[in-house]
């Protein structure tokens, strides 16, 4: 397995937000993590990236024990995250945002990588010099994904990429995620939009109040009565 979480717990101050989470993501897999607001999805991604609350338990990535590593060391090992709310560097240009995404890589690798990202996300290519803060929500989401891809990640963590976007844009974002998976990128996708996420996922986990309560293939979870009732509004 590329990423293995073993009994991971996390807390903000005195509040425990994750209770003994054990999960795994295999190389090339697209794994969805679904759950309602406040269930601990974002916290789990932050713990994996090392920017979250203090955590206990083991986190192994590509054979390394990363639980104590600083966030930048984890990016260098190959973990890139597209954070919730996009978090682009608003006062800087699209070009600069993407280059900063490749901050951990050799400078000479950035030029060719940049062109590859622009080919993948043509909407951004037309706006290279534009400040990131002036982009539409959908363009900012594409930029945030492009920025994470600039790190050439072995594992891409996506936090609510469809949040607050128009339906057409949401469809485009999910198409892009499916394309990335087909191209071989390993993805851990966190979504409140359980229907869309599970539809493209190989496997899925359901998280409730900081605990993983279900694990199955994406198709099986979509058909699971408990999931349908709680997350698909059926």
């Amino acid at each position: 397995m590329l990423l293995e979480l073993d009994n991971v717990a996390g807390r903000y101050g005195r509040n425990a937000v994750l209770h003994g989470v054990s999960a795994a993501v295999g190389a090339g897999e697209l794994v969805a993590l679904v759950g309602s607001n406040g269930a601990g999805k974002t916290t789990l991604l932050r713990v994996i990236s090392g920017v979250g609350p203090a955590s206990t338990g083991r986190i192994r990535f590509a054979g390394h024990d990363i639980a104590r590593l600083a966030p930048d060391r984890r990016v260098r090992l190959g973990i890139a995250q597209v954070p919730e709310g996009r978090q682009v560097f608003a006062p800087q240009s699209v070009d600069d945002n993407l280059r900063l995404g490749g901050f951990t890589r050799p400078r000479r690798a950035l030029g060719p990588e940049l062109e590859r990202i622009y080919a993948l996300l043509p909407a951004l290519a037309a706006r290279r010099r534009q400040l990131a803060g002036t982009l539409s929500g959908g363009e900012q989401q594409m930029l945030a994904i492009g920025r994470a891809l600039m790190a050439a990640p072995k594992l891409l963590l996506l936090d609510e990429p469809s949040l607050g976007l128009a339906p057409l844009v949401v469809a485009a974002v999910f198409r892009l995620i499916a394309d990335l998976k087909r191209a071989g990128t390993t993805i851990l996708l966190v979504e409140q939009n359980a229907q869309a996420a599970l539809a493209i996922a190989d496997r899925g986990y359901v998280i409730e109040t900081g605990r993983l309560v279900l694990e199955d293939t994406g198709t099986a979870l979509l058909a699971n009565p408990r999931v349908r009732e709680a997350y698909l509004g059926v």
Binding site: D72, F89, L100, A148, A151
Partner: peptide, 23 residues
Amino acid sequence: TLFGKAMLATAHNPLAAALVGID
């Protein structure tokens, strides 16, 4: 310079800066 831009980026959004691997 990318290093200078990384300083500005850290000033603007420390979380996102950490997530792209800026110390």
